[in-house]
Design a protein around this nucleic acid. Structure first.
Length: 363
DNA sequence: CATGCGTGGCG
DNA sequence: TCGCCAAGCAT
């Protein structure tokens, strides 16, 4: 069955959004004008990738105070940028955002959708979101929310992302009729608050025309994708102190927690626990969960007499400079622990083994 | 194109 | 406790 015209089908979304929309710090009051600060839209959209609104709000406010303009961000150093992103996750977004700011500072804002999508960290969704919300271009932005709403409304079988191009073309007249910024945000807001994975159809402005609802199939549209189970590992997380300095691993260029400083880790499989361990302080461990990994973390604190020549990638950091370094949640947790008294462990690795593992190979 | 990338909240 | 997932993107 062919789809009805988008402009008429989605018309109830516009007044609904005007009535329910939240006053978020990146939103402009006037939905019909270009946004007064496209940079604010860019920042918010990068932060909102795979991240919920409530989590983003405080980060956005601090970020805009710290880097108020494209130029301020373009000129910032990488540790500062990561520090402002610390705890938000998916840290390469921070590097992409800085790289995008550098390009915009040098070349100005792109003049079309393709130019936006070519910026680092901007794909089909984010490019269209910035284009429609910041510049009022009729570029449909399809995120997970929008795909779910449209899949149900139009009763699309299978993965709606496979029909993204078709859906975007279908949506353009609706954006032109009701306003690109208004329609883009309304579609996502509906998916986030009403047409959620478990829908609340009673509050939906499109309930009377929703094909999935008419077929009583909202529970199975769209289908949920299977995901690969996380890999499990176990490690010692080591805070090693000497002469008022702590041993940290410098940021990696790619991979998990790239761009962040980390405590040295030792594979718990290769460094067996030994009873005693008199000079160590340990705390009860915890399970650290990432998207594709589960780490069983055992935090340790070891003081040694003198700084030794550290292994490649490890650096001695003065204790009072530690708080300025960006760390992931796992490493923040040990940073917090060493500020408080600990307990002697019953089981821990041999301190000599830990020290040796962090030292440069002797000549 | 399947996989990797963080974290917090929810049922 | 645990699995699911949230305004995706790059490789």
């Amino acid at each position: 069955m062919p789809w009805p015209a988008a402009s008429a089908l989605l018309a109830p979304l516009a007044p609904w959004f005007e009535a329910v929309r939240r006053d978020l710090p990146w939103r402009a009051p006037d939905l019909d004008a270009p946004h007064p600060d496209p940079y604010a839209v860019l920042v918010s959209e990068l932060m909102l990738q795979q991240t919920q609104v409530a989590t983003v709000v405080p980060y956005f406010i601090r970020w805009m105070a710290r880097f108020p303009t494209i130029r301020a961000l373009a000129e910032a150093d990488e540790d500062t940028v990561h520090k402002a992103w610390e705890g938000l996750g998916y840290y390469r977004r921070a590097r992409f955002l800085k790289a995008a700011a550098s390009r915009i500072a040098a070349e100005g804002w792109p003049g079309d959708l393709e130019g936006l999508t070519d910026l680092p960290g901007l794909g089909p969704y984010t490019g269209a979101a910035v284009g429609s919300i910041a510049f009022q271009w009729p570029a449909p932005a399809l995120d997970g929310n929008a795909f779910r709403v449209l899949a149900r409304l139009l009763l699309i079988e299978g993965d709606p992302k496979a029909r993204a191009a078709e859906l975007r073309g279908w949506l353009v007249p609706a954006l032109e009729a009701h306003g690109p910024s208004r329609m883009t945000q309304a579609l996502m807001e509906l998916g986030a608050t009403v047409c959620a994975p478990t829908p609340a159809c009673g509050g939906c402005p499109l309930a009377d025309r929703c094909r999935a609802r008419q077929a009583d199939r909202t529970g199975e549209i769209p289908p949920v994708a299977r995901r690969t189970p996380p890999k499990a590992s176990a490690l010692w997380l080591l805070a090693l102190e000497a002469e008022g300095h702590l041993l940290l691993q410098a940021p990696a260029a790619k991979g998990l927690l790239a761009g962040l400083w980390r405590w040295p880790t030792l594979d718990a499989e290769t460094v067996p626990a030994t009873p005693g361990a008199p000079s160590l302080i340990a705390w009860p461990g915890w399970t650290q969960v990432y998207t594709h990994r589960r780490e069983s973390v055992s935090p340790l604190f070891l003081r040694v007499e003198a700084r030794f020549t550290a292994a490649d990638g490890l650096r001695w950091i003065p204790r009072d400079e530690l708080s300025a370094l960006p760390l992931g949640k796992r490493d923040q947790r040990l940073r917090d622990l060493i500020a408080t008294p600990g307990q002697r462990p019953l089981e821990a690795p041999d301190p000599a083994v830990l020290t040796r593992a962090c030292a440069a190979p002797s000549a």
